[in-house]
Every structure is written in structure tokens, then in C-alpha cells.
Design a protein around this nucleic acid. Structure first.
Lengths: 199, 199
DNA sequence: CTAGAGGTTGACTTTCAGGTCGAATAAGTT
DNA sequence: AACTTATTCGACCTGAAAGTCAACCTCTAG
């Protein structure tokens, strides 16, 4: 388990670090086996803890799933922010953003989980809102590209969902340390995406 | 429930038709809510049956999921077969095949379920084998296109997974009867895919 | 009309994973 | 050392959903 060695005596930091470790570890298991095929006991064991200890850091399994989603969308929001003002036109901006997204999935070990339906009420509403926000941000860039002539005119929603789907599918087949490096995949994805949408 | 009205007195046909209805209905529910969020009671109710009656047509819930997968891969195999000898080059062949795949998802209500991990032993092995077979068939076409110059040279696996991901993601956001017609989506997907991979 | 196969059911059992709790241990403070 | 707070655990509880079963309708053939 990753503890914060910089602040060994700061209890709050320790707690936060361990909580994060729980969520990251669970995220990996969810990605590999799926949410419902991953028991709390398994998550606990992979961290060398008992199931009961998990509940010291987390309120419920559903909360873990929620945090997994939020973590990814938080990182994606950052990526969106980081391309503000970058790129000469819509297409260039989109390439930067899509490359950043791909890097999140391959380099940072984050995963876009599809299991939104296992969340209820407020949790689900929030996650769907975050996902919608990202989709709109991407769509806006695509629309900008259609206006400035760098992206071929078409239905923006379909255009966006096409290449965002590829990102989601990454979770299923990409394995770190395999024949295909994350960088290679990211580059290929950016290339294939951009050629597909360019004018 | 859809019964075979052509052969009202053929019991075996009735049985087969009803069994199919169970699987199709379940497939829809699985697509919308996910496998684990769909109970047998719910599947039964949506057909106007009790849960116990379901087990007259099906051995287990897992078997239903298995049949759902097999149904899709069966249809995809057909699609692969139907493009044999068609198309002047690899790219054209790929466009035909991909269009057929998209039509399966949008027109025929089939869905590529991601939940392979909920299957165990033989079931899972078989489904993974079928999926692998499809992937190889598509990859072979792409490689052919790279040889004949119609498709840009790149790593075939990454190329294939990119646009196959889009197909999988369709399940999540496409809703029949929505603003976007199935045909429109299929056409857009074929276009975006082919431009993305063409030389 | 009725026998028996086809089809359906309510009520039951079983299993398993999420979640709780009070006790036990470790770590930090005085 | 004594006391307090942070962690952890074994054992237990619980509910939901899969799966079973014996009895009960309902056809159709003869």
C-alpha cells in the first residue's frame, strides 16, 4: 500500500493517502474484472487488509465506484483546461486533447468505467453530469473546428461519440507492459482520430 | 411475447420461439441496465411470466448471457461471410463489413455486451474464442488493405481496435427512435472509420 | 371427454457478498 | 507508564437474487 512517506506523522495525510490507495486499487480491479465481479474482500486482500478495515476509509462499495468515476472525470477536466488557448485551430486543439485523454488511460492507469448503472440517485446523477460536461466540452471543440474549416462538417454528436468510443474500449483490451506501449497507442489513436474527422 | 404464429401447433417451434424471445428480451435489458443490474424476476415480468417459467426455457442466467453473446457473434460471422469476394480492395471490403456491423447494432437491436467476465469456464472460453475469431477476420481484411495499398500501413491491431471500440460504445448511448437514426449513424461511422484508415 | 404431455406458478431453499460491531492492537501524547 | 486516539480484525447479520420443486392449469390427440 502506498503511504505518504513525506509526511509520516501527519495523520490526515496518511488517511487520505490510504483512502486513495483503496480507490486506485479498486479501480484497477473494476477495470479488469468489472464492478460486480470484484468483491470487497478481494479489494481488501489485494491491499493486505481485512474487509472491515476498508470501511474505515470508505462508506460503501458504491462510493468507491463513484470516486473512481470522479477521479477520471477530474483528470479529464484538467486535460480540457490544459488545452484552453492551445492549438491553432479546432483540429489541432482536438488532437492535443485526445492525446491527453489517451495518455490518461495508458500512462496514468486511469480507466473510463462503463458501469454507471450500478450507481444510484445522487451518485449516478453527478457522474452523468460530469460525463455530459466532458462530452459537451469535446463537442464544442469539434464544432469550433467545423466552423474554422479544420474539421469536416457532420453531426457533431456522432463524430464525437465515434472516437470517444475507442477510448472506452481501450479499458477492455489494453494491458500495461504488453507488446503495445501506451505512447504508441496514444499516437496511433490521435492519428486515426484526426484523419477521420479532418476536412 | 412473440410466438411463432406460422406454426401454432408445432410445439417444438413454439418452444424455440419462446426461448428466443426470452433471450432477446434479456439482451435488451442487459444492454440498458447491465447484466448484474438485471434480475431474473425483471426479465420474467417484462415477458409476463414468473421467474420459475424462465427456467423452463433456460438453464441459468449465465446461459442467457452466453446466448446473447453467441447471437451477436453469429450475426457478425454472417456479416463476415457476406463480404467474402465483395469489394475491389481491402478498404472497400472493410467499409462493407463495418457498415454491416453498424447495421446489426442499430437496425437489428443486437448489442455487443462487454460483460465477458461474468461468464465462467467453458462459456467464457467459447465467447472469447468467437470474439477473437471476429477480430482476426477484421484484422485480416485490414492487413489485406495495407498490402494492396488502400489502407495506410500501421499496427493492424491498434487500427482495428480503434474503430471496433466505437461500435462497442454504441450500446451505451444509442437509443432506437431517438434524434439520430440508425442508418445515419451507420453511414457516419463508416465514413469516419474509412477516412481514418485510408491511405 | 379425458389422459397425459406441455407449460406455469407460488412458495421455498440456498448462496453469497455487502455491511456492522465490539474487541483488540498499534501509535502517539503527556 | 498511563492514557487517548487511530487502525484493524474476526465474527456476525442481512437482504437480495439465483435457483428448485411439487402442485396446478391448459392444451391437443385420440
Amino acid at each position: 500500500m502506498t503511504t505518504n512517506i513525506d509526511q509520516p506523522f501527519n495523520r490526515e495525510a496518511q488517511y487520505t493517502a490510504k483512502r486513495l490507495a483503496v480507490i486506485r486499487s479498486a479501480a484497477g480491479a473494476f477495470r479488469r474484472r468489472g464492478y460486480h465481479n470484484t468483491s470487497m474482500v478481494l479489494i481488501a486482500k489485494s491491499l493486505g487488509l481485512s474487509k472491515a478495515a476498508l470501511y474505515y476509509y470508505v462508506k460503501s462499495k458504491e462510493e468507491i465506484l463513484y470516486e473512481c468515476h470522479i477521479m477520471v472525470y477530474g483528470a479529464m477536466d484538467e486535460a480540457v483546461k490544459s488545452v484552453r488557448g492551445q492549438g491553432e485551430n479546432g483540429l489541432e486543439k482536438l488532437k492535443l486533447l485526445y492525446g491527453a485523454f489517451a495518455a490518461l488511460m495508458t500512462r496514468d492507469g486511469l480507466a473510463l468505467l462503463a458501469d454507471v448503472d450500478s450507481l444510484k440517485g445522487e451518485f449516478q446523477a453527478t457522474v452523468l453530469a460530469r460525463r455530459g460536461k466532458i462530452e459537451r466540452a469535446v463537442t464544442r471543440i469539434v464544432e469550433g473546428g467545423m466552423k474554422d474549416g479544420s474539421i469536416k462538417k457532420s453531426d457533431p454528436k456522432v463524430t464525437v461519440f465515434f472516437f470517444m468510443g475507442a477510448l472506452n474500449w481501450l479499458n477492455v483490451w489494453y494491458e500495461p507492459g504488453g507488446r503495445l506501449s501506451g505512447e504508441m497507442i496514444a499516437d496511433a489513436f490521435v492519428e486515426q482520430m484526426s484523419v477521420g474527422v479532418a476536412s
